[in-house]
Simulated scan of single mutants.
Amino acid sequence: MKEAGPIGIFDSGYGGLTVFREIAKVLPQYDYLYLGDNARVPYGTRSFETVYRYTWECVQHLFSMGCRLVILACNTASAKALRSIQQNDLTQLPDLRRVLGVIRPTAELVGEYSKTRRVGILGTQGTVASQSYIIEIEKFFPDIKVEQEACPMWVPLVENNEFDSPGADYFIRKNLDSLLQKSPDIDTLVLACTHYPLLINKIRQFVSADITLISQGELVAESLYDYLQRHPEIEILCSKNGDAEFYTTESTDGFNQKAKVFLGQEVFSKHLAI
């Protein structure tokens, strides 16, 4: 058996840091290796084939760095690449590797929040176009009706540190109004992009207090905890020193600066050429 290695966490940029933050709270004893493919963002507007290719390249790099378990902490990658990686690529590998996403853990629990059985999805164009949330939620809660809204300006607002500015109000209110017009009975909103938790205070200003806002980080962390309990053959391959390393395919200075916004702490990243 190979030596245990860190849990890999992949995102197209910075948003996955909100998932990493929650995972590290729940499972602080494990080692983590975070990779942000910042040089090739955005993923949300790219084709299925391109997102799959970029994602699989990054996953292979994480494998080569010792990771045996990788979390796609990115809704677009989970929607457009995860199934192909799980069903095709992993089956060709000579040893045990696993790749998990963020959509299924959210879909499994969303029914516990909605009383009206009307759920809204706020995501990137790629996530919405994939209809992955509609498909997955229907598997677990066929009585729930799902409406979606693509929010193409929300990620740029976050990445340009404008998420708490007055200029963000127009775009956030516009998308929320559009979604709620499709189904006024929506009582649960899923923030289906890992950047969106940084907008949660703004979002709350424009929706009823009766509407529940779901950020994925906590749900994914709970799901990973459960997964490792149920799969000791994977858990034993995850090293436990409480360490974390951060890699980016872009400028480390830029990554460190923005990562501090997402994590609330200093980050010292390394560059990875892909």
Score class of each variant (00 low, 15 high):
Lys174Trp: 06
Glu57Ser: 13
Val119His: 00
Glu250His: 13
Tyr30Glu: 03
Ala79Val: 04
Gln92Cys: 15
Phe48Pro: 10
Val128Phe: 00
Ile137Leu: 00
Thr194Asn: 07
Thr116Val: 04
Gly264Glu: 10
Glu108Ala: 02
Ala77Ile: 07
Asn160Val: 07
Val267Trp: 08
Leu191Asn: 03
Cys193Asn: 01
Ala79Thr: 04
Val261Phe: 05
Glu3Ala: 04
Asn175Tyr: 12
Val207Glu: 10
Ser223Thr: 12
Val110Cys: 01
Lys240Met: 06
Thr212Trp: 14
Glu149Met: 06
Tyr43Ser: 02
Pro184Glu: 08
Lys145Phe: 11
His271Cys: 13
Lys258Ser: 09
Ala168Gly: 03
Glu108Cys: 01
Phe140Ala: 04
Arg230Asn: 12
Ser12Cys: 06
Glu112Ser: 09
Arg46Ser: 03
Ser12Trp: 05
Ile200Asn: 12
Arg21Lys: 13
Gln60Val: 08
Glu49Pro: 02
Met1Gly: 12
His231Tyr: 09
Glu108Gly: 00
Asn75His: 02
Leu213Lys: 07
Thr252Leu: 10
Gly217Tyr: 11
Gln92Ser: 15
Asn88Glu: 15
Ser269His: 13
Thr55Cys: 06
Cys238Pro: 00
Asp210Met: 14
Tyr113Ala: 01
Ile211Ala: 10
Leu90His: 13
Val267Gln: 06
Arg97Gln: 14
Leu35His: 01
Asp210Gln: 14
Tyr52Ile: 07
Val220Gln: 07
Leu263Gln: 07
Leu263Glu: 07
Pro156Asn: 05
Asn160His: 13
Phe141Met: 02
Ile7Trp: 04
Phe141Glu: 01
Pro142Arg: 02
Arg118Gln: 04
Cys67Thr: 05
Phe163Ala: 06
Leu219Arg: 12
Thr55Tyr: 05
Gln265Val: 08
Lys260Gly: 09
Ala259Met: 08
Gly66Arg: 02
Lys2Thr: 12
Lys240His: 05
Val155Ser: 01
Cys67Gln: 03
Arg53Ile: 09
Thr252Ser: 11
Cys74Tyr: 06
Lys270Glu: 12
Asp253Thr: 11
Glu222Cys: 14
Leu72Phe: 02
Leu180His: 09
Asn256Leu: 08
Ser165Lys: 00
His271Tyr: 13
Gly254Lys: 09
Arg117Pro: 07
Tyr34Asp: 00
Val99Thr: 13
Glu218Ala: 15
Thr106Gly: 10
Ile103Asp: 01
Trp56Asn: 12
Glu57Gln: 15
Tyr227Phe: 15
Asp177Gln: 11
Ser64Arg: 10
Glu108Gln: 09
Tyr14Met: 12
Gly8Leu: 00
Leu176Cys: 09
Ala24Gln: 14
Ser84Gly: 14
Val59Tyr: 10
